[in-house]
Write a protein that binds this DNA or RNA. Structure first.
Lengths: 112, 112
DNA sequence: ACAATAATTCCATAATTATCGAATCGTTGG
DNA sequence: CCAACGATTCGATAATTATGGAATTATTGT
């Protein structure tokens, strides 16, 4: 995972409505949620929701599928965990962490 | 952890230079890195670095301490793991995840 | 006290991002 | 085929964020 896509993903999540949408999708699981339902639950007009969902999709955080008239969005769990791994990569630079709990995803840390 | 601070943290990380700085700090561990060294390594003028470090500090992602003339920054691991926990909170809404690996920090999931 | 060093604040400018109404594009049922 | 529905794209405006030079604030050694 390269910095470029990570920045896009972080930027996508760093917005009130998009963060709310993503969390709803994370909780919804594989079933997903249609765009219109997201717009209604979050309280933004459809055109704004589309804009935000496009950002999330462009960052690879969500996938979409058409089902009849609706377009259904789902969270991409792999992208999310890749993002977290990137943030903690090589945490503490090999030195045993005092609070090892913080280095949770433990990408490069065999020492714990 | 509330949405407000999470958005600030994500926004702080969603920028090339700040992400680079934060990762250097994560790898540096408790020892930390002086502002000037960060500016030089990342290749931005001191005033820009100050601006970015202030953003990270305001988001609670880094702490700072003075040591003689230098101000030394360190990553706040607790804030980082709190951030990740927020993103995966109530992942898959109780339904057993197909790819459970993605729900790593496993905040609310006793079912796995 | 002074010069040098490390960092920050201030400020104007540039660039990016968000908002939402109106128009448009697929899909379905009658 | 057409009216209705769900969603997206377009476009103009508003708001936020990034940049970096110059001035300012701490700190140290002589």
């Amino acid at each position: 995972m390269q910095a470029d896509i990570v920045i896009r993903a972080l930027g996508a999540l760093a917005q009130e409505h998009r963060l709310a949408a993503f969390r709803l999708l994370v909780q919804a699981g594989a079933e997903g949620i249609p765009a219109g339902v997201l717009a209604e639950r979050i309280g933004v007009p459809p055109s704004s929701m589309s804009f935000h969902l496009a950002q999330l999709a462009h960052a690879g955080l969500v996938t979409q599928r058409r089902e009849s008239r609706s377009i259904i969005y789902s969270a991409d769990y792999a992208a999310m965990s890749g993002l977290m791994a990137y943030l903690t990569e090589n945490c503490c630079g090999g030195v045993p962490c005092e609070d090892a709990a913080a280095c949770l995803p433990a990408t490069n840390r065999e020492t714990v």
